[in-house]
């Protein structure tokens, strides 16, 4: 039997659909429906379509402050993790001669990530606290008289924890795209008299773009969807978008939580679309 082209096409996308439909599209539809329902205040929901949940989200100054905070963390994390991730990958690809050693070092990069996120986050507390190692060391060396309080339970602490958790998501794709840069191109540029800076600017950076973009998608969507790091590392000093609607769920306000979730989903999709618009990942990867 010979299948026609359309059938083959459908068969090709079946695995993807089999995952996307039950695990993404269906839940989103359920949440979207919940977001236009109403609640009786006791966890019961009834269908009397309303956009009130959305108008509340958009009219509340709280929403904008929460988004400001969360986007701020996403941006800061993105900047630092991209910077660190880029140089780590660069070192591994261009400075480590032996392929085996590079792979070995690359694997070592992942070692800290064998423990849970939570442990990696909590371990910062004894380091950064008022009576923590850093403050004690600085005080013992006479650099400061009183402990630095901004180290823990602050925006600083949140960013440190995020960067620590998420840099690997930058290293892996950047390493991958850099590894595919033909070394002869760099040699040719050198022979033609290009400076190191030019090589970086015209060859390495443009050719690692897809890796940076992929990493950015991971980092941005994880930070936007997280609330736990913010909660613990800021010492409750600030809140996050997801944290706020998790608390709505805690008091059984499902419709308003659902509306906030839909708004967040759309926003994250826009952010990803923006990243994809800046870098055409598909084109870069298939090159």
């Amino acid at each position: 039997m010979k299948l026609n082209k359309t059938a083959v096409g459908w068969l090709n996308v079946t695995p993807l659909l089999a995952i996307m439909v039950p695990f993404f599209i269906m839940p989103i539809i359920v949440v979207a429906i919940a977001s236009i329902m109403q609640t009786d205040g006791f966890g019961g929901m009834f269908m009397d379509p309303t956009l009130e949940n959305y108008t509340y989200v958009f009219q509340s100054a709280l929403t904008y402050r929460l988004y400001f905070e969360t986007i701020k963390f996403a941006a800061l994390t993105l900047i630092f993790s991209a910077f660190i991730g880029f140089w780590v990958a660069y070192f591994l690809v261009f400075h480590v001669r032996s392929k085996l050693l590079a792979m070995g070092l690359f694997l070592i990069c992942t070692v800290p990530f064998w423990t849970s996120n939570i442990i990696r986050m909590i371990s910062w507390i004894p380091l950064l606290g008022k009576e923590g190692l850093i403050n004690q060391a600085l005080m013992a060396m006479g650099f400061i008289d009183a402990p630095l309080e901004f180290l823990l339970y602050s925006d600083f602490a949140v960013v440190v924890a995020y960067v620590h958790q998420l840099t690997i998501f930058m290293i892996v794709p950047i390493f991958n795209s850099m590894a595919r840069i033909d070394k002869r191109v760099v040699e040719a540029a050198l022979d033609a008299g290009a400076s190191k800076f030019d090589i970086m600017r015209y060859i390495i950076l443009p050719m690692s773009k897809s890796g940076i973009a992929l990493g950015a998608i991971f980092v941005v969507s994880i930070v936007m969807g997280d609330f736990f790091v913010v909660k613990v590392m800021s010492g409750g000093g600030t809140a996050s978008v997801v944290g706020a609607f998790y608390e709505d769920i805690g008091v059984l306000q499902y419709p308003s939580a659902a509306a906030s979730a839909i708004v967040l989903t759309i926003l994250v999709m826009l952010m990803v679309a923006l990243i994809l618009r800046v870098v055409d990942i598909r084109k870069e990867i298939t090159q």
Partner: peptide, 10 residues
């Protein structure tokens, strides 16, 4: 109250 509590947090 929850919404106001988040005002306090941020």
């Amino acid at each position: 109250m929850n919404k106001r509590w988040n005002d306090f947090k941020v």
